[in-house]
Design a protein around this nucleic acid. Structure first.
Lengths: 132, 132
DNA sequence: TGCGTTTTTGACAATCATTATCGTTGCCAC
DNA sequence: GTGGCAACGATAATGATTGTCAAAAACGCA
């Protein structure tokens, strides 16, 4: 019951998933990542990929996006809290920071007495390349 | 093949779903609504409930929320664009308007050349009643 | 009002991402 | 080296959502 044990073991699979995410650009689904790992010759179970991604997401090391009508997408993100501007057509993603939005959300929540506030935001549009 | 026909027919089922949404508070899943209709004695197929909800959502008459790890929730909302502040514990929902957020999203998207912009935002927290 | 056309309906099956299960494996501490 | 315990992974289960297609209902028009 000691709270000092990290209880996160350093396994080959976890490293593989983490490393793959480090090299990838953009968002990918769990099944995507699993397929890529197999192509590389890394033998990792699909279940483990899901578990690892959840763990990384909980730890805040990766970001999860739920596009309308699709599966969960995971991505290694830059530090800190930010949001995404995603192209509807090609999926190209831009990270955007909005301090004003953060504080607005906190303020609104506080006004209604809500505590322990978090929020999600996605902006969708058509990127310049796809608009043509 | 005339493209001029509005092609939206006024059926008993559509009215039933719409009326039910008009009386409900808060968000409900498609399956929820389907069950309520059955209890009322309205005979409406689950497929039709899904289709009707999608149609209403497309028309902007109702709002869709995708809570993390759950099913789609539908709700008749007040006019205009707004967002939701949802209690993690009890689901109590407050509608919040954030003109500043709207314009921020549009501005950010425009800066990156994205067109035809839309966005989604949900704020999660613990409401006063549940915080105690 | 009656008729034909076209949409809508609805029961059921299919899909498919995600989660649970549970015996086995391998990491880590001692 | 060894034991305990968390992680793994193949498979099955879950469950919401979507597709299918014949039958029924609604609308427009004469």
């Amino acid at each position: 019951m000691s709270e000092s044990s990290a209880a996160v073991r350093n396994t080959r699979q976890r490293s593989a998933v983490s490393a793959l995410l480090g090299e990838m650009e953009g968002f990918h689904s769990a099944q995507d990542l699993h397929a890529m790992l197999r192509e590389r010759g890394e033998r990792v179970g699909l279940t483990t990929v899901y578990r690892t991604l959840q763990g990384l997401a909980d730890a805040g090391e990766i970001d999860v996006m739920r596009p309308p009508g699709g599966e969960h997408l995971y991505r290694r993100c830059s530090e800190g809290h930010h949001h995404h501007l995603v192209c509807r057509a090609c999926g190209r993603t831009v990270e955007v920071a909005g301090p004003a939005v953060e504080s607005w959300a906190d303020r609104v929540a506080a006004k209604h007495g809500y505590a322990d506030v978090s929020h999600t935001m996605e902006i969708f549009g058509t990127c310049p390349a796809c608009a043509r």
